[in-house]
Structures are given as C-alpha cells and as structure tokens.
Simulated assay, not measured.
Amino acid sequence: MALLSPEQVAAQKANVDAFFGVAGKIFEGVEKLVALNLQAVRATLAETQENMAKASGTTEPPQWFSLQAGFTGPFAEKSLSYGKQVFEIASTTQAEVTQLAQTHYERYNDRVQALVEEAAKHAPTGSEAAIAAWKSAIAATTTLYETLQKTGQQAVHAVESNFDAVTATASKAVRNNSEQAPVAAGAKR
C-alpha cells in the first residue's frame, strides 16, 4: 500500500476545496433563482386574484376591454424585470465560479511551474531541451487559458449589452402600448 506524499495530500485537499467552493457558488445561484421564482409566483397569484376581482365587477364590454388592456402593460414590465433578474443571478454566479476556477488554476499552474523548476535543478546534463519543452508547453497552456478567459469575458459582456438593449427596447414598446391601449379603448366607445 502506497502512502501519499505531503504534496499529493495538499493537492487533493486543494481539489476538494475547489470542488466544494464551486458547488457552493452554484448552490447559492440556484437558491437565488428559487427565491426569485417563489416571489414571482406569490406576486402573480396576488395580482391574478386582484385582477379577477376587478374583472368580475365590470358590466360593460368596453370597461372589460379597457381593464384587460391595463393588465398587459404591467405583466410585460414584470416579465422583463424577471428576465433581467434571472440574467443577473446567472451572470453573478458565472463570474463567481469563474473567479474560483481561475484561482484554482493559478495555484495549480504555480505548483506545476515549481515542479518543473525543481526538476530542472536536478536534471541530468543534456536534458535542457526537454525542460525547455516543458516550460514552453506550460507557457502555451497559460496563454491559451488567458485567451479563452478573455474571450469568454468579452462574450459575457456582449450578451449583457445586447440583453440590456433588448430589455430597454421592449420596455419602451410596452410603455408605448400600455399608454395607447386606454386611448384606443376610449375611442371605440
């Protein structure tokens, strides 16, 4: 039976800590989504009850149509707000997980570089090319990781900007429609 070296034990502990750190952040994100969904369901039920009470009190068709038009605007605004909150939760969770992964990667990369440096000190004569190849591979991997990370961040920022633009446009359209709906309902009378 082989015992683990102190370095292997430390590496395993770091991996377990990283796993539970990421799992904890993901769980926090899911918890926020569940809370948001419960809040949305409660609000929707309360509004539905209120709207049904208002609708049952109408006696004229134009009143009913005007009332229905009044429900559309707030519902659309709340839907947009809900979508934005879901996106913010997902974006925050993704950023936290990315930060944890980056920290873990940097620690791992530092350990690998230290291992290569230690191996280079004790390497036999003539192994300089192999050590240089290791160092080159580590540098290439680091560069690739940093490039992928920057590309991912740019993609997230682009999606965030597009989402904000779409939300603003949709919100403006909803406001315009809700302002025009009572006027149109009053014109049909």
Rank of each mutant, 00 (worst) to 15 (best):
G57I: 02
K32T: 14
T58N: 08
V30Y: 13
V16G: 02
G21A: 01
Q63M: 03
P61A: 04
K13Y: 03
G57D: 12
R42T: 09
G70D: 00
I26E: 11
F19R: 13
E31Y: 15
Q63P: 04
E50G: 05
G24M: 05
K25D: 05
A35H: 12
V22L: 03
Q39W: 06
N51R: 15
K13L: 07
T59Y: 12
A46R: 08
G21N: 00
A40E: 07
V22C: 02
S66E: 07
Q68F: 04
G57M: 11
E60F: 12
A69R: 11
V41G: 08
V34N: 10
A55L: 06
T48K: 14
F27T: 13
M52P: 07
A35M: 14
G21C: 00
L36T: 00
A23V: 10
W64R: 13
A18P: 14
A10L: 06
P6T: 01
P62G: 05
N51P: 03
L4K: 04
A11R: 11
V9C: 07
V16R: 09
S5R: 03
T48M: 10
T72A: 07
A14H: 00
S5Q: 01
S66T: 08
L33R: 04
L36F: 00
A43Q: 12
A53R: 13
G29E: 00
E50A: 10
K13H: 03
E7G: 06
T48R: 12
S56F: 10
K25A: 10
P6L: 01
Q12C: 06
V16E: 12
A35Q: 14
A40G: 08
V16L: 04
G57L: 15
S5Y: 02
A53D: 07
P61W: 02
Q12R: 09
V22E: 03
F71W: 08
S5P: 05
F71P: 00
L36D: 01
A18V: 01
